[in-house]
Design a protein around this nucleic acid. Structure first.
Length: 887
RNA sequence: GCCGAGGUGGCGAAAUUGGCAGACGCACUAGACUUAGGAUCUAGCGCCGCAAGGCGUGCAGGUUCGAUUCCUGUCCUCGGCACCA
């Protein structure tokens, strides 16, 4: 054993031993319980960043912990290797996307290996390789057969900057999820997967995972799916007279609206429809020019990119068309409104300004009547005598119905149900549920993705590729221009084919699949990574899945995690798996952020990389001033790491300077896993110091800890150390079970401090002390393994005297012994009127009345109680005594 | 605007969920060892105060013998969604 700790030396050594021994190879077996530890797979951009390090360090810690706890652990890694950056690289630098991707994987695999992550490297999956994407296509065919994949013309979200179509999720907020620029619309024929076939299951099955998933993730998914319960109501279009002329022949006889507040229907002052609504198209010829002009203007406005910040002003126009309120019989005008969206509900709403914010705003602007029909219960009486109360703002709560004929006096809850039933009974409506969730558009006009296995034949129409012809392989390359046409459409060798049906000439689909398809089922592939006939063997999946613990960033809270849940349900219905939910427990780790320095004189932030900035601190160490290299005073902030801000940290550099173990330990220790982590360079040195302290402890005691027989009696020092050891075992185990990674490190630091403070030199130590130190050191080393595996393996090899590694030696996580963890004497704080005044030393078994007696006799306590009436004394067993006195 | 998470020393954070606020670490201060220290060791380190003591978990109240923890109100920060009828 070296006297000094050389990180690089031992890290290389143990990485070699692990590889030689295939230490982390997983196999299906009987006996031990299984544990599937999964981290979100990386996109092979070419560089690992600190977010990866944090994610994978946590996953690895858990994998090691479970191994040492006797589990058969599956801990795999793979590559989300389809996607746009490869094409960007092709456009910018003319490189082949496949080569670019493979090269990047090579580099990043090296980075992961240098971190010493305990993956089963034999199970890697690569999304871009035919062996994998073959089954993207296989799944597509299965879904097509089940009617879960279909094609339709649609307006797609289009990002001008990235020249890409985007899913609703990727375009959420009207901004491109990748570049943040505004999204526009474009008409295209697109393939869809019917996620909406599973909306209710996606919602209801959340009950199964409630305990293991962060509440906020489930909430966000819930909001995203957006189930809302209400009713459809049909408003008959009245045969118009006068200026409007006769009703066009093919015009709909009624307009169907969706409402969640049918109880407010007597307050409707209009029906407002989307500009794209069919009723408008049908009547268009008869509408006055100023109306059609306005409608066209609104349509045009809707296509424009939307600025997230500015609220859109209500706009609209009265079409002149009239409809009848089926409840009141009242004739209402039909307006076009820019705030009604064609793709939600029915594209038409009944406008009830008194009870809806938007309708209120609309009515105010166009001076439409506002009639209150739901009242706060205590004001109901007022409404008998007046037409309507003037409303300063809409009343959107539930209440009691007024001015609603037969329904007066009913509560909103009652009325909602009864009025919907009434509508159904009379044939002009029904209860209904609508959702925000749309089907998943998976077509991408991209080269670097899985080809959609569909063929278009002039004679047979849409024909799917045969299973035996899968995979539909990507050509070696394609002319990638970045202009938004499918590159495959320019490769005749690819698209020219024969119809699988009639054998005649036909063309392949040239769009490829969204890369979220790959990540929707990759973690099943790990269970059987080389299967050539099926995505995976159901038996292998049955053993390993569902995933016991999934760890990743919460930026995937909706998209990836909804798609993956959807995919599992489809797989269940295909008979591949027999459960509803693929992930039992989910942990979302926070971002890694760093200090940034910038000046904003020009109105725009100009960033200065931290190494070029000199920083002044006050006597407490607080940053007071930052100055750039050319002497400019800079502002500072904490922001997400990025190249442009210059505050990124290269994991490779960290490993080079401080070692993988120290880097990983620090990342785990620095903050709770779900918090943001502010990177600061100095903190990591503390991790190095800690590892070195442990190293020195083993070095110091290395020749004196061969004692393996538990001694009968213990000195005070030995007893105290053993107590600390077992308390620490409990704390660390509890932390792991609760997925806390920062507090166990603190506990291990305390234990190492306690060993250092034992107060006996090895040479002078007794048998009992040597045993206590051995116990403490081996517990420390084993418990440190999940955070710093290389160092721990090395130190463990010193303790046991061989270099086979912990797992081969059958090492297990130390067992907590309550009898040893128990203190012989504890400190009991004594309060007077809730304020700490003294402390008592007592045995933990001291009876309550004895503690009370001791407290009252205590000199410090008496200073505050003498001459005062003692009202009562509260004794919390083993915790505290509080004496209550009257002043 | 709506939804969610969160405000504890100079900083990252602990606190067995109602019982000693600030464990552990970073930074800082002083000292020791040293030719040297960006190594190591020792001590100190919430604020006010010479001290006794007082104050202190965003702020204001409340419940309680006792509140970082529970309740009410309020302010702020960060994330998500955004005309979803």
């Amino acid at each position: 054993m070296d006297e000094k700790y050389f990180a690089k030396k031992i890290e290389q050594k143990w990485q070699r031993i692990w590889a030689e021994r295939a230490a982390f190879k997983a196999a299906v077996e009987d006996g031990r319980p299984k544990f599937y530890a999964l981290e979100m797979l990386p996109y092979p951009s070419g560089n690992l960043h600190m977010g990866h390090v944090r994610n994978y360090s946590a996953g690895d810690a858990l994998a090691w912990y479970k191994r040492l706890r006797g589990f058969n652990v599956l801990h795999p890694i793979g590559w989300d290797s389809f996607g746009q950056p490869a094409e960007d690289a092709a456009v910018k630098r003319g490189v082949n996307p496949r080569k670019w991707t493979e090269d990047n994987i090579e580099v990043m695999r090296g980075q992961l290996q240098r971190l010493g992550l305990s993956y089963d490297w034999d199970r890697q999956m690569y999304a871009h390789r035919p062996e994998y994407y073959k089954f993207d296509q296989w799944f597509f065919l299965k879904m097509y057969e089940k009617g879960l994949a279909y094609k339709r013309l649609t307006q797609v979200n289009w990002c001008e900057t990235d020249q890409a179509t985007l899913s609703n999720e990727q375009a959420s907020g009207g901004l491109c999820w990748r570049c943040g620029n505004p999204v526009t619309k474009k008409d295209l024929e697109q393939w869809f997967l019917k996620t909406t076939a599973y909306t209710d299951q996606l919602l209801d099955d959340m009950a199964e995972i409630e305990a293991g998933w962060p509440q906020h993730v489930l909430k966000r998914q819930q909001d995203w799916i957006g189930r809302s319960e209400g009713a459809y109501v049909d408003f008959k279009v009245r045969i118009a007279t006068g200026a409007l002329g006769n009703m066009p022949k093919d015009a709909p006889a009624s307009i169907r609206v969706f409402t969640t507040r049918i109880d407010t229907i007597y307050g409707a002052n209009a029906v407002v429809v989307a500009a794209e609504h069919p009723v408008i198209a049908a009547h268009r010829a008869t509408l006055p020019a100023n109306v059609t002009a306005k409608i066209d203007q609104i349509i045009e406005e809707n296509l424009k990119p939307r600025d997230r910040e500015t609220e859109i002003e209500k706009d609209g126009i009265d079409t002149g068309i009239k409809v009848l309120n089926p409840f009141s019989g009242e004739a209402l005008p039909v307006w076009v409104g820019n705030y009604v969206m064609m793709d939600y509900g029915t594209g038409a709403v009944m406008s009830v300004p008194a009870h809806d914010e938007r309708d209120f705003e609309f009515a105010k602007k166009f001076d439409l009547p506002i009639r209150q029909v739901v009242s706060e219960p205590h004001l109901v009486h007022e409404h008998h005598t007046m037409q309507a109360l003037a409303l300063a703002r809409p009343f959107t709560e539930y209440g009691v119905l007024v001015h609603s004929d037969y329904w007066n006096g009913k509560t909103s809850e009652q009325a909602k149900k009864e009025m919907a039933d009434w509508a159904q009974k009379h044939g002009f409506g029904e209860t209904a549920t609508t959702y925000r969730l749309r089907d998943w558009g998976i077509s991408r006009q991209r080269f670097w993705g899985s080809p959609i296995p569909v063929i278009y034949c002039d004679k047979c129409g849409v024909v799917t590729e045969k299973y035996e012809n899968l995979p539909v392989r990507l050509p070696e390359n394609a002319p990638i221009t970045g202009t938004g046409e499918s590159p495959l459409a320019k490769v005749p060798e690819f698209y020219e084919t024969d119809c699988p049906n009639c054998g005649g000439p036909a063309k392949r689909e040239t769009d490829t699949m969204d890369t979220f398809v790959d990540s929707s089922w990759y973690f099943f592939r790990y269970t059987d990574p080389t299967n050539e006939t099926l995505p995976f063997d159901p038996a292998a999946a049955a053993y390993w899945t569902p995933v016991d613990q999934y760890i990743g960033g919460d930026d995937h809270a909706v998209m990836h995690l909804i798609y993956a849940r959807f995919w599992s349900k489809v797989m269940r219905d295909l008979g591949l798996v027999n459960f509803n939910e693929p992930v039992k427990r989910l942990l979302t780790q926070g971002m890694v952020v760093g200090e940034t320095f910038y000046d904003d004189e020009s109105g725009k932030r100009v960033y200065h990389p931290p190494p070029t900035v000199s920083v002044e601190r006050d006597s407490k160490g607080k940053m007071t001033r930052a100055v750039s290299a050319d002497g400019k005073a800079l502002k500072f902030a904490i922001e997400r790491m990025s190249k442009s801000k210059g505050n990124g940290v290269d994991p490779d550099e960290m490993v080079e300077i401080y070692g993988a173990d120290a880097s990983r330990l620090f990342v785990m220790f620095a903050a709770p896993i779900d918090n943001e982590l502010v990177w600061n360079e100095t903190g990591i040195e503390g991790a190095v110091r800690f590892i070195q302290r442990v190293w020195r402890l083993i070095y110091k005691w290395r020749d004196h800890i061969g004692v393996t027989a538990e001694p009968q009696i213990s000195s005070a020092a030995a007893g105290k150390l053993r107590q600390k050891t077992h308390q620490t075992i409990k704390r660390v185990s509890d932390s792991f079970e609760g997925l806390q990674f920062n507090t166990p490190v603190a506990a291990l630091m305390e234990l190492s401090n306690a060993i250092a403070d034992i107060g006996v030199e090895p040479e002078q130590s007794g048998e009992d002390e040597r045993f206590a130190v051995r116990e403490a050191l081996s517990a420390l080393v084993l418990m440190l393994t999940p955070f710093a595996p290389h160092t721990s393996e090395e130190l463990y090899s010193v303790i046991v005297g061989n270099e086979n590694g912990m797992l081969a030696n059958g090492a297990v996580f130390p067992e907590y012994r309550p009898d040893l963890a128990k203190a012989s004497e504890i400190e009991i704080p004594v309060q007077v009127n809730g304020k700490l005044r003294s402390r008592l030393m007592a045995s933990p078994d001291t009876a309550n009345d004895e503690l009370q007696r001791m407290a009252l006799l205590d000199e410090k306590v008496r200073e505050f109680t003498d001459g005062k009436e003692i009202v009562k004394v509260i004794v919390v067993p083993k915790r505290l005594v509080n004496v209550v006195v009257k002043a």
